[in-house]
Every structure is written in C-alpha cells, then in structure tokens.
C-alpha cells in the first residue's frame, strides 16, 4: 500500500511538470536573451571560439553538399548508394555539431521549445532518451515483468507518450483510475526519422484471468495497423483500426493489471490483418506472423473500483465477473451447520 501511495505521489508530480511544460509551450513564447558581452572576458572568448567552429563546420558542409551533388550525377557508379548514405550522414553530423554549442539552441531545448525539423534538436532529444529516460523505462518494464510476460526484452528506440484527458503516463507503470481512461488516449511516439514509416500500435492487458485454463490470458484492447509516423508527425492517428479502443476494466477480485501500449515497426511496409480475436491474444505469435519489430513501450496500472462496474454495464454490456478464491470446507461445521460427528459407526 505504501509503495502504491508513493507511486501516486510520483505521478502527480509528473503531471504538474507536464502542465508546466505545456504552459511554457502555449504561452507567449519567451525570447532568448543572450548575456551581455564585454563583461566577462572568458565568455567573450567562448562565444568567439564557438562562432569560429560553426563557420568552419558550415564551410565543410558546403563542400560535402557539392560532393553529394557530384555523386548523385554519376549514375554508373556501383558504390553510389553507399557513398550517398555516408555523405548524408556526414552532412547531418556537421549540421548537428555546428549548432550544438550555440547558447540559444541549448536554451530553447531546455525551455521545451523543441523543433523536430532541426537535426540538432532531434539529436538532443535522442540523446536525452538514450542517456536518461531509457534506463528508467527498462527498469520499470523489467521490474514489473512486462517484458517476459508480453514479449521478449527489446531495445526501445524512442519515448512513447500516452496522454488521457488531463492525465499522462509520464513514468511507465504509474497507477491510473479506470474512470480516467474511458476515452481513447493520445499516443505519440517521439521518433527521429524524417521519412514516414508504418507502425502497428496496440494496447495489451496481460492480466485477464482465464478461468477455463486456470491461468492468465492476454487481451488486446486496441489494435491499429499501418499508422504513418514521422518525426514531424509523431501522434498516432489514421491507419487501419482492427480492434477499436475498449476502456481498461480490471476485473473485481484480481490484482493490478498492466495496460501496455506497444509501438511496432512494419519493416516490410503495409500489412493486411484480417479480424483477430481480442481474448486469448498472443502478442508473440502476432509479431512473428507479421514480421514486426518492437520499437517503443509504455504502460500504466489499474485496479478495480466502482467505475469498472459502470464500464461493464454501459460500454461492454456484459455481466461483470467477480473473481475470488474458492470457499474452503470448514473443518468443524458441516454444510447444514451442525457440528460433525466425532465417531462414525462402521
């Protein structure tokens, strides 16, 4: 109970920081005020050095672009593709390193004004994820056993942001209330590729009890395929909805449920998925069947409360199941209520 309270506290703190970020982004954008020069000689020298470096890198970039144009013209070269990719990488690297030391770029990044069109901001966001957020995400995913339970452990490449009305899953594994998650969330996958790629987005609940088999089953609560995403369009929208959103409904008498949102890339382009059964869903075989590669994960937890009964009655229109341990036969009293006999006449 204590840990649960602690997590609630964490989540509220995360929410407040999110709000702060949002207000920063939506209010009249504060402009960058550079510190005055001719006060601190070290600062002046630093600015001079950074400007010099920037100029040098941009001159190099011009050369690389010329080379790129030349390579593009030469059609009959067998190594043209390799050369092109290498030169393009070099150009992006030069662009990033030219801008990275700029005080204004750093200031904008720190104040939440991140422009994913700029290679330097993309680089900084990626580095932030790799250095800071990824270890925390993996820690929670492994501690709460999302990874061996739903799919094998994988290396997430970018952050998945799940936002419900007024609530967001800032940290994977926080507790939400069933009443807060009735409407579908806004899911965004902060990726770093400029070209549009197709993804499959799904929400899995691996903790639904399976009474027949006396075990747990996975239920797919939301399944979208062929979702086009790029770095400037990170919000999940469009694509084919195979299973429409079903609000999370942790059954009465069960422990917490881990509602997991998975982002899977479709490396071979568009896929055709016929209708699938949401109950007894097998994520591993689904991934294998359609050759998907997992790229991002996030999850939140929920336990039963009165809202679940309402969800069952109004949205699912089913009788609500109630789970519990089987009743124990009393040692001392028979079913009738009389005390059992001590001796039997044989």
């Amino acid at each position: 109970m204590l840990s649960r309270n602690a997590i609630h506290r964490v989540s509220s703190a995360a929410r407040s920081t999110l709000k702060l970020n949002r207000t920063l982004a939506t209010e009249a954008t504060p402009s960058f005020a550079a510190p005055k020069t001719n006060v601190n000689p070290a600062y002046d020298e630093a600015l001079k050095l950074i400007a010099q470096d920037k100029e040098y890198r941009y001159s190099m970039l011009k050369k690389v672009e010329k080379e790129l144009a030349k390579v593009k013209k030469a059609n009959n070269s067998p190594t043209q593709k390799q050369q092109l990719t290498r030169l393009q990488q070099l150009a992006i690297d030069l662009q990033v390193k030219a801008e990275l030391n700029d005080p204004e770029v750093q200031w904008r990044f720190r104040n939440g004004m991140r422009d994913m069109n700029r290679p330097v901001h993309r680089y900084m966001v990626e580095r932030e994820f790799q250095k800071d957020r990824k270890s925390k995400l993996l820690e929670r995913v492994l501690q709460m056993r999302v990874c061996p339970d739903i799919l094998e452990q994988f290396d997430p490449t970018a952050q998945v942001i799940v936002e419900y009305d007024g609530n967001s899953v800032q940290e994977a594994g926080i507790f939400l209330q069933p009443g807060e998650t009735v409407k579908p969330p806004t899911v965004s996958f902060v990726n770093f590729h400029e070209e549009t790629k197709l993804y499959t987005v799904m929400m899995i609940d691996p903790d639904v009890p399976d009474q027949e088999r006396q075990t747990y089953q996975q239920q797919c609560l939301w399944l979208n395929t062929n979702v086009p995403l790029s770095t400037t369009q990170p919000v999940v929208s469009g694509g084919d909805t195979i299973l429409p959103y079903v609000p999370p409904h942790p059954q009465k008498g069960t422990k917490y449920h881990r509602y997991t949102i998975l982002i899977l890339e479709q490396p071979s382009g568009k896929i055709e998925v016929p209708s699938v059964e949401d109950k007894r869903f097998d994520t591993r075989s689904f991934i294998q069947q359609y050759q998907l590669s997992p790229r991002g994960v996030s999850f939140f937890r929920e336990v039963w409360n009165e809202d679940v009964s309402r969800i069952y009655a109004d949205i699912l229109k089913e009788r609500e199941p109630v789970f519990g341990k089987p009743p124990k036969a009393s040692k001392y009293l028979e079913d009738v209520g009389r005390k059992s006999k001590k001796y039997l006449l044989l």
Partner: peptide
C-alpha cells in the same frame, strides 16, 4: 539565470577547445 548561461557556454567552449 545569466550567470548560469555564461558558465555553461564557457564550459562548452572549453570542451570544444
């Protein structure tokens, strides 16, 4: 504020150097 910005810029320039 400004002092922090200056400090960070100087640190970055030193690393660059």
């Amino acid at each position: 504020g400004e002092a922090l910005q200056q400090h960070e810029t100087i640190e970055r320039a030193w690393k660059l150097h």
